[in-house]
């Protein structure tokens, strides 16, 4: 029961062939290790974050502009949130990169989707990092009714 190439010619291959040349780098290995290492750290960071914001003290009702400002006045929470931002973003972006490799069949689709992904990553990480370090709860010259109560001092 051998089939010749002619016999199967009307059936297209499942997807366009990809370049499988050996790159001799450990890039995929590091990515795999990173997903696990960052996953363990994210477990602590995310649940710590959820506990502090939603359960500790007055719980969810305590969250307002002032609460966020208060947290970011402490270097501990600045570092905590910065780590959470960077790790979750790299972890999530690498995960979505994997999914694009899974499902995008044509090289063009892959390039477009990955470009959009890396752009979204860059914008989010840059903006997020900027906000964590430059957050000013009382910008000078703002209308008093928009500012939290502790800014009057």
């Amino acid at each position: 029961m051998t089939a010749t190439t002619e016999a199967r010619s009307p059936i297209p291959a499942p997807r366009s062939p990809r370049n499988r040349r050996t790159t001799r780098t450990n890039y995929e290995l590091y990515g795999w290790v990173f997903m696990r290492a960052s996953g363990v750290l994210l477990l602590v960071l995310i649940f710590g974050h959820l506990f502090m914001n939603l359960i500790d003290g007055d719980g969810i009702s305590a969250i307002d502009f002032g609460f966020v400002a208060g947290k970011w006045a402490s270097p501990l929470w600045q570092v905590w949130d910065l780590l959470m931002l960077w790790l979750a973003m790299i972890h999530g972006t690498n995960g979505v990169r994997t999914i694009i490799n899974d499902y995008a069949e044509r090289t063009g689709t892959r390039v477009v989707l990955k470009s959009a992904l890396y752009l979204a990553f860059t914008v989010t990480v840059v903006l997020g990092t900027l906000v964590i370090f430059t957050f000013d709860p009382c910008p000078p010259g703002s209308p008093a009714d928009l500012l939290p109560s502790f800014c009057t001092a």
Partner: peptide, 12 residues
């Protein structure tokens, strides 16, 4: 190991 360490190897 070199061959399977690559993009379409074991890390998939």
């Amino acid at each position: 190991l070199e061959i399977l360490n690559d993009r379409e190897g074991v890390w998939r």
